[in-house]
């Protein structure tokens, strides 16, 4: 990918994100009272992260089987309310070990 197109991507990302944050702060002084809109915005982060995680998580590593084991590990520790860093490192460790075992078998 050329540096110019990479810069175009980054420029668009930064501009859109900044305008979203800036406009309400400088233009609006009243609060949103529409309950539907507020509820929608409340649920957005969960929908985004759910859709981004599955099915992409299955192809995030070399072997799908290792990704499944790593994903289950992450689910388990996330349910136990461990920190973000702990869950991420635990899932990666399980993937690393599983992939070494898979390569020994194959």
């Amino acid at each position: 990918m050329s540096n110019a197109s990479l810069l175009a991507y980054i420029g668009v990302m930064a501009l859109v994100t900044y305008l979203i944050r800036l406009l309400p702060l400088v233009l609006f002084t009243k609060k949103i009272t529409n309950n539907f809109l507020r509820s929608f915005l409340y649920y957005v982060p969960y929908a985004v992260l759910g859709a981004m995680t599955v099915p992409a998580i299955f192809t995030s590593t070399t072997y799908v089987a290792a990704a499944v084991l790593g994903g289950l590990t992450a689910l388990f520790f996330a349910y136990r309310e461990k920190s973000l860093l702990f869950v991420a490192v635990a899932a990666s460790a399980v993937v690393f070990i599983s992939e070494r075992i898979i390569e020994m078998i194959l």
């Binding site: 992260l49 590990t73 920190s83 635990a90 899932a91």
Partner: peptide, 12 residues
């Protein structure tokens, strides 16, 4: 590669 997805699960 799986780290970010682990993090997302830990958030939701």
């Amino acid at each position: 590669g799986i780290a970010i997805y682990g993090m997302f699960l830990a958030i939701i």
